[in-house]
Amino acid sequence: MSTPTDNAVVLLSGGLDSATALAMASERGFNCYVLSFDYGQRSQTELTAAKKIAADLKVKEHRIVRLNLEDFGGSALTDSSIDVPDHEEEGIPVTYVPARNTVFMSLALAWAEVLHAQYIVIGVNAVDYSGYPDCRPEYIAAFEHMANLATKTGVEGERLSIETPLIDLTKAEIIREGTRLGVNYGLTVSCYQADDEGRACGVCDSCRLRAKGFEDAGVADPTPYMPGV
């Protein structure tokens, strides 16, 4: 059996939350191997943001994996025929991408096993979030249990932990923590439908949560917005 390491696979979308989770993982002393996904999402500029954030935080390695979730659709983020809502929705919103975090974490798990990494870090949040079922603590606990049953390293005793440092924080608390750690939020893209320059629409659910977070945190919002917003 190999010796477990301080290697961590960190999921990075290019948004505010995942950038903060990466900075927190770095502060803990993890060797951060960063994984992003080009999954057919509306805003490709978030991947440009992910590259800049990974470089700024000097990670060990950054990989972008291409997935074709737009082949399935079923979400306003992967199907252009479904409009991104400009108001808060009841229940699970149309911006939920079917099984997205399960797909992402499964691939992170594969890389973690190769790296003998003890940790997968994901910036899910159960406080100021959009009601996605794959952001809940019980989901994370279930995935961690499965990961340790389903892998060679898990069976051989290299227990894997799914780290969710933002799970119980408000958006304002996340921003304050990231600010303390020196996260450059001007590099991040959170908007579901940012333009080619990375400018935010200001009306989608993600934009509203982000703007309120900066306001509540008492931190100047560095988000570039589209003209007229």
Rank of each mutant, 00 (worst) to 15 (best):
T151W: 04
P133M: 09
A112M: 03
E158M: 12
A110Y: 11
A25I: 02
R100A: 06
D71K: 15
G91A: 05
K51M: 08
E46T: 09
V183N: 10
L16K: 05
L187V: 06
V127K: 05
L149Q: 15
D17K: 00
A76C: 05
E215C: 06
D56W: 10
V84Q: 04
L160K: 02
F30R: 15
R136M: 05
E197A: 12
R180E: 15
N68F: 13
S75T: 13
A211S: 07
D17R: 03
A54C: 08
A150Y: 12
S13N: 10
F214C: 04
K51F: 12
G157L: 08
V189L: 11
A49E: 05
N101G: 06
M24E: 11
C207D: 09
V10F: 09
A211W: 05
I64H: 11
A220I: 14
L149N: 14
R199D: 07
E197L: 10
T164N: 02
L187K: 04
L115E: 15
S43L: 02
R199I: 00
N101D: 02
Q44I: 13
V9T: 06
Q193Y: 10
M105W: 00
F30C: 15
V203P: 10
L209F: 08
Y139K: 01
N101P: 02
I92K: 07
L77H: 06
R100L: 08
G73K: 12
R42W: 10
P165R: 01
P165S: 04
D86C: 11
A110E: 13
E61W: 12
E113A: 07
N7D: 15
G228Q: 01
L115M: 13
I140R: 00
S18T: 00
T188K: 00
T95P: 07
L107E: 05
M146H: 11
V127A: 04
R159W: 14
A142I: 02
A21M: 01
I167C: 06
A117M: 00
A50L: 03
Y96L: 14
I122W: 01
G123N: 02
S43I: 00
T170K: 13
Q118N: 15
D205Q: 10
E215H: 11
V65E: 06
D83R: 15
M226K: 15
G154C: 11
Q41Y: 02
A112F: 03
G218M: 09
L109P: 01
D6I: 03
A142E: 06
P4S: 07
E88M: 12
L16N: 07
H116L: 12
S106I: 00
K152N: 04
G154S: 11
P222H: 12
D71V: 14
G186S: 01
A126P: 03
L22K: 07
A172D: 14
T20E: 06
C201R: 10
Y129T: 15
V189T: 10
E88N: 11
L16E: 05
D128I: 03
L181E: 11
P85Y: 13
